[in-house]
Design a protein around this nucleic acid. Structure first.
Length: 561
RNA sequence: UGGCCUAUGGUGUAAUUGGCAACACAGCUGGUUUUGGUCCAGUCGUUCUAGGUUCGAGUCCUAGUAGGCCAACCA
């Protein structure tokens, strides 16, 4: 907010332009309008950051408005989840609103339209109406009910409201233009009959307003100045304005709809239907599975609100098609986690190292820094002993100069501990290495300041003391889809691209300081990645989710060979 | 036989509104480093096509091309 001149996106330009043309800054108001029929995902997060970001930028109120005009699909559970997610992202709405709060006002205005001859009751079936609607290339025809008298329209509409008709028997339509090139202007439906219980208004209503009739008028009621939505609503703008014209009073703020392109993330899907399929077919374990692009999934995965906000800020906003590489999201979570997460040591694929010259039965507690980039993070004690675990792939019997980890005859630094040298290793009958024998240099202790401790050795390994380490469950997550755009292939289903290795559950050996880690704690397992404590954790069985690996140039080197 | 929207490095977004095309990510090279992390330095590479207006066009105009959206009693 307070840094040097940041360039504006096209929506901010529009606001600036309005301000320049005399729109009072105090009357700026925005809204985030989710339909409570599903969970918020990363795409919504961008929209949330956009609208609330505008609120922050101009110090303007932002309403959280639930667009709950369809009782068939909407539930309180989603309202609660959405509120939790928006809060978690770090935003505060001015007021919590519901389109259903406006049902009476909307009804009254509908009567006004009928009286002005701008709306009528159509008693055809939906099939008949569809057939009449024409196509984008051909104009539609008029309904035989289009010229009902105002009195009859009023009488029928009231009867609809009283519940005197079956679902599907009548609708209220705006009387606009059946030959418009914009299909939405061909006498759009304003109300339909639905004998359903609404999550808030219960059984008060059996007629429910449609989106187009509701949304703009709700913006108007709330005096939202800029109503931002995605591109597919661009054609709705003409209707949005037409409806507004019917009730607009010059003395009030006239809401302005503008459209932006939704932002697509690579290697993922976000449509409700597809996410539901992943849940129902057991590809993932629920809506908040750490592989899901839902806010709750990202949270459980270990993403921070800051990283998501920074991501949204970086990708910007425009009107063209886009596919943002997920590596940018990963960059932002690494960037933030690098600053805030304590470093710890854990070995996920252990091999035992015996330090042959370490005094039998002895142990010592060494000082280790919690974050080399942040002195204020302090230090902690880590136990060392004559038997430790290191990662299997940190040892090779022989290797070239590029491999600066442990090899026979070679030296390596144990992070925050001593320099060791591999002398020999033992194998089982299949030739698998089962143990490595090393010697250590007692004078090389980290931080001791001795000549030996200051020696430069190329490699530094993380480790845990066998005797002190404890076991925990570690869930290694990877991208859910192997294809960057799994749901855009004409000949293939997105399910064909599910990564079979998106989750591996393993056992890790962790340093004892982690024993009292709490759910949602985030740490960096040194040299491995960032991990987050999962809510499945119990006091006997801690569960860590891998949020993201560290950048791994070694992996890249190996890949290129 | 339509209407609306869009087109800038590999990706995303900018360009003081007509004035030297920039920022981030990704890639590559080197340096620092008790994390092959971080950090630092460097490097690669861009205005869909064809005309037009202009001293000057990514920006304005025309045509073309490519992509997206539009015919739910969904939002």
């Amino acid at each position: 907010m307070n840094e040097a001149p940041k360039s504006l996106n096209f929506l901010e330009h529009i606001v600036e332009e309005d301000l320049k043309n005399g729109f009072p800054k105090e009357q700026l108001r925005f809204r985030f309008p989710p339909e409570p029929n599903g969970y918020l995902h990363i795409g919504h997060a961008s929209s949330i950051c956009l609208n609330f970001g505008l609120g922050l930028r101009y110090d303007s109120p932002v309403n959280l408005r639930f667009d709950d005009t369809n009782p068939v699909k909407e539930e309180q559970e989603f309202v609660d989840a959405i509120k939790r997610d928006v809060k978690w992202l770090g935003y505060n709405w001015d007021t919590e609103r519901y389109a259903s709060d406006y049902f009476q006002q909307l009804y009254d205005w509908a009567i006004v339209l009928i009286k002005k001859g701008k709306a009528y009751i159509d008693s055809q079936s939906s099939e008949e109406m569809a057939a009449q609607k024409g196509t984008p290339n051909e104009p539609g025809g008029h309904s035989p009910f289009r010229d009902r008298s105002i009195d009859e329209n009023i009488r029928l509409f009231e009867a609809m409201k009283k519940g005197e008709f079956e679902e599907g028997t009548h609708v209220l339509r705006a009387k606009i233009d059946m030959s418009s090139s914009n299909m939405l202007m061909r006498d759009p439906i304003m109300y339909r009959i639905l004998h359903k219980v609404h999550h808030r208004t219960k059984s008060d209503w059996c007629i429910y307003p449609m989106y187009d009739w509701t949304h703009g008028e709700s913006d108007y009621i709330e005096q939202v100045s800029h109503s931002l939505c995605t591109l597919e609503f661009a054609m709705h703008r003409e209707l949005y304005d037409w409806f507004l014209d019917q009730v607009y009073d010059e003395r009030t703020v006239r809401p302005k709809q503008r459209e932006f392109a939704r932002r697509n993330l690579s290697h993922t899907v976000v449509s409700k239907r597809k996410l539901l399929k992943l849940v129902e077919e057991g590809v993932v374990n629920g809506w908040n599975d750490p592989r899901m692009p839902t806010i709750s999934g990202l949270r459980r995965r270990g993403y921070t609100p800051e990283s998501i906000r920074n991501f949204a800020d970086t990708i910007g906003i425009a009107k063209r098609e886009n596919l943002i590489d997920v590596s940018l999201l990963e960059f932002h979570v690494r960037e933030h986690l690098n600053k805030v997460s304590p470093r710890v040591m854990g070995v996920l694929d252990p091999i035992k190292v015996v330090i042959t010259n370490y005094p039998e039965g002895e142990e010592e507690w060494l000082e280790a820094e919690n974050n080399p980039g942040d002195e204020s993070a302090g230090t902690r004690k880590v136990p060392f002993s004559g038997e430790i675990y290191i990662e299997k792939n940190d040892f090779r019997e022989e290797a070239n100069r590029k491999f600066f980890r442990l090899k026979l005859g070679g030296e390596v630094r144990l992070k925050s501990a001593y320099i060791i040298k591999a002398e020999s290793c033992t194998k089982d009958t299949d030739g698998n290495i089962t143990e490595i024998q090393c010697t250590y240099d007692p004078k090389s202790k980290s931080g001791s300041g001795t000549q030996e401790s200051l020696r430069k050795v190329k490699g530094t390994l993380h480790w845990v003391s066998v005797k002190h380490a404890f076991e925990a469950e570690v869930r290694i997550y990877d991208r859910l889809f192997l294809d960057e755009s799994p749901d855009t292939h004409k000949d293939k289903d997105f399910m064909d691209f599910v990564n079979p290795d998106s989750l591996k559950v393993i056992k890790g050996f962790l340093e004892p300081s982690l024993k009292n880690a709490k759910v949602e704690d985030r740490v960096q397992f040194q040299r491995l990645g960032y991990f987050c404590v999962d809510p499945d954790s119990t006091s006997e069985n801690l569960v860590f989710n891998r949020t993201v690996t560290l950048r791994d140039t070694w992996a890249k080197i190996q890949q290129n060979n």
